[in-house]
């Protein structure tokens, strides 16, 4: 596994800031009624997406979830294209035809946010099968929530990946709630990670607020997959800053002191302190990154708002390949 270099750390810090600013901005914009549809924000979970994707290149695939903005940014998707997509504009990554729940960018190996819980599993199996079939050392990473862990696809897909030793890594983002339902209620096993034992693959539960812990665990699993040793399952314990969707009153939150203490942790601040201490970047670098990120997101909003809506003919195109 590659050690976290200074350059990589800077890049990771940029992306974590981009995700946080992007989502905070959307939170405000949504409240103002400027964007249509459902929006599920990733803020608070930045360490997971960025810690995992720091090991990936454009030729590696990821599958995503309802809460896909963070995965997109971590995988290198363009902020302007993303924001325009969420605004439903012609310049969006999907020409305004996908929206927040379906942002995808195949050029970046991003197989789409997904409106169906648990449907990313088999897509990752397919991408992993492709990598294995073509003999590449690319991997497919399947991000899924604690809710998706209780879908049938979880079982079928992990079992298949295991029997075929596919280069797939299953990343569980256990953000404590499946919509409004707590994980300790909906899962018979105390952890998601321990279910790996049933499939004879490595399973590990890791602190998802700790960037370095995320980075190291993911690195091990991805290396193993690239080497053809098969899939792994990692459960990252994390917490979402906002509701399941924008407008969620979140009355189900803050049930215990432990939960509140966990909620109060800020993965970005923790990583900043760590990087400064390890001299991966300086205070000045950090401030520059922070300022630039705010500006980049503001530019993305401006770009989206100035972009045209799709032409009416777009309704009829892109159903079939010619």
């Amino acid at each position: 596994m590659k050690k976290l270099t200074a350059a990589k750390a800077k890049e990771a810090y940029e992306k974590m800031n981009d995700i946080r600013n992007f989502e905070n901005t959307l939170h405000d914009i949504f409240a103002k009624g400027e964007i249509p549809g459902f929006v599920h924000l990733y803020a608070g979970e930045e360490a997971v997406a960025v810690g995992v994707c720091s090991h990936l290149t454009d030729s590696d695939y990821i599958t995503s979830t309802h809460r896909g903005h963070g995965h997109c940014i971590a995988k290198g998707c363009d902020l302007k294209g993303m924001m325009a997509e969420i605004y439903g504009r012609e310049t969006g990554l999907c020409k305004g035809k996908g929206g927040s729940m379906h942002i995808a960018d195949l050029d970046k190996g991003m197989l789409g946010a997904n409106g169906i819980v648990g449907s990313g599993f088999p897509l990752a199996i397919g991408a992993g099968l492709r990598n294995q079939y073509l003999g590449t050392d690319d991997v497919a990473v399947c991000f899924f929530g604690d809710g998706a862990a209780n879908e049938g696809n979880f079982h079928e897909s992990i079992n298949m990946a295991a029997i075929w030793k596919l280069p797939v890594v299953f990343i569980n983002e256990n953000n404590t709630f499946a919509e409004s339902t707590p994980q300790h209620y909906s899962s018979a096993s105390p952890t998601i990670a321990e279910r790996a034992a049933a499939y004879n693959i490595p399973g590990e539960k890791v602190d998802g607020k700790d960037f370095m812990a995320v980075y190291e665990a993911a690195g091990k699993a991805i290396d193993r997959a690239r080497k053809g040793e098969g899939p792994s399952l990692i459960e990252y314990h994390t917490y979402r800053e906002y509701g399941h969707f924008e407008g969620d009153e979140q009355t189900y939150k803050y049930d215990s002191d432990e939960e509140i203490a966990f909620h109060d942790r800020d993965d970005i601040k923790e990583f900043r302190a760590y990087a400064l201490k390890k001299k991966l970047f300086t205070e000045k670098d950090a401030e520059k990154i922070e300022d630039k990120s705010v500006q980049d997101v503001a530019d993305a909003v401006e770009f989206a708002k100035a972009s045209p809506i799709p032409q009416p003919e777009a309704l009829f195109t892109d159903v079939f390949a010619d």
Binding site: P122, L123, G126, A127, Y133, N153, I163
Partner: peptide, 23 residues
Amino acid sequence: DTPISEQSYMGAAVGAAVTGLRP
């Protein structure tokens, strides 16, 4: 030969198709 997992192997076929194979 797939396990009796119609949901996931059909999804895997979609995933393989969108990433360039012809399942």
